[in-house]
């Protein structure tokens, strides 16, 4: 049954993405135009709660359900974090969706988001092709 836990947490996350309208193109536009603080406050409070939770988990040496020490994967810095990050930001403005919200938009019945998803797969495939030649 444990393999279904990520599915359930996904359901939880999907509900919030829609209800908070983080998955809304309109909110993303208002965020980038600095017209409202909603998205910034959502992001900031999500990080604050996440940070406290991680701190507590580390301090108490909490174990995962499988009995391992709870540890997050850590990502390093390379040129792609900057270049790729900026390209993603450009796409984020156009589509009004970062990766989570793409799936939320599709689930919510916004079928045009299937175009965003298809594009994202093409983009990931192009990255797989270009990767050996790109600076990292």
């Amino acid at each position: 049954m444990r393999i279904f836990i990520p599915l359930l947490i996904g359901v939880y996350f999907g509900i919030i993405l829609v209800k908070s309208q983080v998955a809304s193109w309109f909110r993303i536009q208002r965020m980038f135009h600095f017209e409202e603080a909603h998205m910034y406050l959502v992001l900031a409070s999500a990080i604050a709660v996440g940070a406290v939770a991680i701190l507590v988990i580390k301090r108490l040496g909490v174990h995962t359900i499988d009995g391992n020490v709870a540890q997050l994967k850590e990502k390093g810095i390379h040129k792609g974090v900057i270049a790729g990050g900026m390209l993603f930001g450009m796409g984020w403005v156009i589509t009004g969706a970062c990766p989570g919200p793409i799936f939320a938009q599709i689930g919510n019945g916004e079928w045009a988001a299937l175009a965003t998803f298809s594009g994202a797969l093409v983009g990931a495939y192009l990255y797989a092709i270009a990767r050996p030649r790109l600076p990292h």
Partner: peptide
Amino acid sequence: LLFGGVLVGFGTRYA
């Protein structure tokens, strides 16, 4: 959306 999606897919994987 397709074009923006390509940027999202490429960018997030590169980053």
